[in-house]
Design a protein around this nucleic acid. Structure first.
Lengths: 415, 415
DNA sequence: TTGTTTTTCTCGACAGTCGAGAAAATAACT
DNA sequence: AGTTATTTTCTCGACTGTCGAGAAAAACAA
């Protein structure tokens, strides 16, 4: 129950795009219609009016505009069955623009190509040993793979409206740079160079869990409810990621705090980032193994932990092995303490767990609860609702799609 | 360098006030003009045009509107000296509305009455033993004092456009309730009842440090710079408060996370909130004394600590007393660790210290730096810039004023 | 009085939204 | 086949609001 209020400053003339008078409004309505079409498939004139709240006459004007630009098209009407003038359906024009989506994970890079309707046209995935490759190699690989995707669909580079890249780790989204990741460590990657190969595309670089939070928010927040809703996505696995999504006054804002390497316990166990006492150094897979096998906590942790190792450990914990139980409990404890801080600094909101680590949630839940309860905030507001979410990669993909398409819409509305 | 992106959702018709078409725009410009007048004193027609970017014709329309409503008035032109048609100055009409400002601190409640120009007309302050009084008493006192202020200026209750209350502690700003404070503990106060006595007023209840952050942001953020700027206000004293202000795309958004009672070190010292290991339990005045005098850390802390006690302790620390030095250092350490978490969860931004505790900053700085350096975020991005701000109460008052006047402007623009 | 200069105000054009009703297109009915 | 009913789309005039340009106002200077 922290205390938040957004405030229109409205000082000075110039916040960037001080566009001539009433045209701002038109753009807003263009986007409104486009996003209604994106969310609810093909819609008729009347449907659009209902969905957007715009007057019928306005819908005519706006759709005509969008049709002229080529962003939407009229579909051949199906046999309606009812009587009366048959409705003509408007739909986004699939070939208006395309989006390439790149999901970088520790052992594989997945590429997807989607059309303007959000349909996945093609996909490639390439296993690679990231730890071995340099940053330049990674950029080259991405450029090559995206070019291949385009070529396979007989598209040219100019058809690419957006290129959206996600990874775990710390990202400077404004500068489109990957600042730190578990596998690449201090080798920073500046994705801006990709724009040389795809100059027509907008580039987005996002933290993966941010996208997960975005997708979860889109799925679960009712747009009707104007109140501020929010949620946390917490990704458990080799590393720990966290994303916060909140709806404030019609705008969904999402952020990816640096949770995994937030200080948890000073002078505590060594993390692979080189710091001590990170959340991840207690709750990441390598950390759980380290605790379970009583490896000295200052040992430099393994880069990769095969999942079967973790499964074995979990089985042995469930069969009563005290040390294994303790390791999972400690992981839960760190997560709970960290979450309590995030909730203190924001407000209490539901938490959705994703990632490989969710399968061990039963072993961590007690520790998590204990960690959470250690703060005043939780004592005042109670425990947050914690649920387990669906497939992480799929959620992240949805997040990619929603954000890139929205960005393309925005650009389309700019003329 | 966390990863933040705000995103216009624009789905569905209804975000609350879906007002008829273009009138939204008019309101925006009304507010634009009003806030230009608030920020830059009386302005002529041309000045307004320059400051807001609106066309001269629009300024005529808007000012006519505002004049009709009574929000602004033309001032008698001074002897200009120059030649040409003399400029007529527009100014906010002082009597259009009034704002009462209530600042609750541990030992005194300060009341202020300001006019629509932001000028302080009158003030009262009333010492009181908050710990003794009940919540109902507090409400009655406030109601009485505000009524007295109005009466002394020969105003009626209907002239009160806004009532803004601040306190340290945890506040549910949406519900206008004080959820927890050091002095009132669990006696929650629901300020909404005050609206019975002042039905024409808008009620605002804010965390004090939030207002400080707001005021600091208004003072230091250049409105010209469109980039997202942000800062942290950290209030040091008997209790610890923190406010975050950030400018995103022309909108200033401010929040007051629950920092003082965020979990710092599990199972650590007892805090007066009843939890263990809060930041405040290491960094509040009572905590520093407790450490210095080696009182057992589980002792229930004193409610109040006279400032001279702290001064004495500081002198002895500066003269070399090890235990006193250690106490301040531990306070700094907790603050640094806590700050590192806040920065991890947001982005690196400047920190401004306020409050009585700033006079001991020299004794805490080493500990703070140590605490900050324990996290990956700081290692990547460097230490934040830390400065000492001006008088806390004055800053909070400025924050009050800016927010309430802006709110009144908003309401004025609604017809 | 007549110009000069500076500021404010007015006018017509333009862009956009809205409500109402006309037009279109089909099924059902005779 | 022709007519009516029904449903949907489109058109028209009114309204609100902004903008640029130039007219009007109000002072000083000659």
């Amino acid at each position: 129950m922290s205390d938040v209020l957004s405030f229109r400053s409205s000082d000075g003339p110039g916040f960037g795009h001080a566009k001539p008078g009433t045209e701002q409004l038109r753009r807003q309505n263009l986007i409104l219609v486009l996003s209604a079409l994106r969310q609810s498939g093909p819609l008729s004139h009347t449907d659009i009016s209902a969905a957007t709240g715009l007057a019928s006459a306005t819908v005519t004007a706006v759709t005509a505009d969008l049709e002229r630009v080529g962003a939407i098209e009229r579909m051949e009407q199906t046999a309606t069955g009812g009587r009366g003038r048959p409705r003509v359906l408007f739909a986004r024009r699939r070939t208006f623009a395309h989006a390439a989506i790149v999901q970088i994970s520790s052992d594989v890079v997945q590429y997807g190509l989607a059309d303007y309707c959000g349909r996945l046209i093609d996909r490639i995935s390439s296993r690679r040993d990231l730890a071995a490759g340099s940053a330049e190699n990674l950029l080259q690989d991405i450029s090559f793979a995206v070019a291949r995707l385009l070529q396979r669909s007989k598209l040219s580079a100019g058809d690419l409206g957006a290129l959206s890249i996600s990874s775990k780790g710390i990202i400077d989204s404004h500068g489109s740079r990957l600042v730190w990741s578990a596998v690449l460590e201090n080798r920073q990657v500046d994705f801006n160079q990709l724009l040389n190969d795809f100059p027509s595309a907008d580039l987005f670089v996002s933290n993966e869990t941010l996208l997960v939070a975005h997708a979860l928010a889109k799925r679960s927040f009712l747009p009707s409810d104007g109140a501020t809703q929010s949620l946390i996505a917490l990704s458990l696995g080799h590393s720990i990621g966290l994303g916060i999504a909140r709806m404030e006054g019609g705008a969904l804002s999402v952020s990816a705090p640096n949770f995994g390497h937030m200080l948890n316990a000073p002078e505590d166990k060594l993390c692979r980032c080189g710091s001590r006492g990170c959340v991840e150094a207690s709750a990441g897979f390598y950390a759980i193994l380290r605790t379970a096998f009583q490896v000295p906590p200052m040992t430099i942790p393994a880069k990769f932990v095969p999942l079967p190792e973790m499964e074995k450990l979990a089985i042995s914990a469930r069969q009563g092995n005290r040390m294994a139980q303790y390791a999972f409990r400690q992981a839960g404890l760190a997560l709970g303490q960290g979450l309590s801080r995030v909730l203190s600094l924001n407000e209490t909101m539901p938490v959705v767990l994703t990632g490989l680590g969710t399968r061990f949630y039963d072993l961590m839940t007690a520790g998590m609860e204990e960690g959470l309860r250690q703060s005043l905030h939780i004592r005042l507001n109670g425990l947050p609702q914690i649920t387990i979410g669906e497939d992480e990669t799929e959620l992240a993909f949805d997040g990619h799609l929603d954000r890139t398409l929205a960005a393309i819409d925005q650009r389309a509305a700019m003329r």
